[in-house]
């Protein structure tokens, strides 16, 4: 049974306020921001580890696909990457950026194909399998290896960022395309569970 809309929003609002207060306290303790960024880095590492555990535990479970979630995920990834490098300057040529995005998109589309889609009532759900997990692990290793092999130079950092952006966009677009196809099946004259012809 899902939470009501209002209590969910309240919970998110409370978490946001708590994080902002904590960030403010850290900035008061260290106005240079070093402590804040160090804590953020540690939390990021913990979330990264937790995300691996979560993936391993839940990759087979069906989740409801939402086109808005898929689109927003891709848009956020593009915006964050684009804004960061618009401000910092990308030590990559346009061709290198395009190739990096294309490489990531290829892996992302392949990853999206590993999802098994099901129609459950009016919802379209997706669940992973061992191929899903394998491609996820490979993409994780690829980005980590690229950062290490590139010795964390600005070039390598930028390359990995655009690879990740391509991965997110490719995966989202691949799933969106399959979602659209599944929706056409859903609204076509197909059998629904329990219907006898």
């Amino acid at each position: 049974m899902s939470l009501s809309m209002s209590s969910r929003w309240l919970r998110w609002l409370l978490m946001t306020v708590v994080m902002l207060v904590a960030a403010f306290i850290l900035l008061v303790l260290d106005p240079s921001g070093a402590l804040l960024f160090r804590v953020v880095g540690l939390i990021g590492m913990a979330l990264f580890a937790l995300s691996i555990v979560t993936m391993l535990l839940t990759f087979r479970k069906a989740r409801k696909l939402s086109p808005w979630s898929l689109a927003i995920g891709a848009i956020v990834s593009v915006l964050c990457t684009w804004i960061f490098f618009a401000l910092a300057g990308a030590p990559l040529s346009v061709a290198a950026i395009g190739l990096a995005v294309a490489a990531g998109a290829m892996v992302g589309v392949g990853w999206s194909l590993t999802n098994l889609l099901f129609i459950d009532g009016e919802a379209i759900r997706a669940r992973g399998n061992i191929w899903f997990l394998a491609v996820w692990a490979l993409s994780l290793l690829m980005t980590q290896a690229a950062t290490l092999a590139g010795r964390q130079t600005p070039y390598a950092v930028a390359l990995v960022s655009f690879l990740g952006m391509g991965l997110a966009v490719g995966n989202s677009l691949g799933l969106l395309a399959r979602y659209a196809r599944a929706r056409r099946l859903l609204h076509g004259a197909v059998s629904v569970p329990g219907e006898r012809r």
Binding site: V107, G110, V135, A156
Partner: peptide, 14 residues
């Protein structure tokens, strides 16, 4: 094919 192709392209760029 997609995953290996993407990985090879990324490796070449690195």
């Amino acid at each position: 094919a997609l995953v290996v192709g993407g990985a090879i392209l990324a490796a070449v760029l690195i």
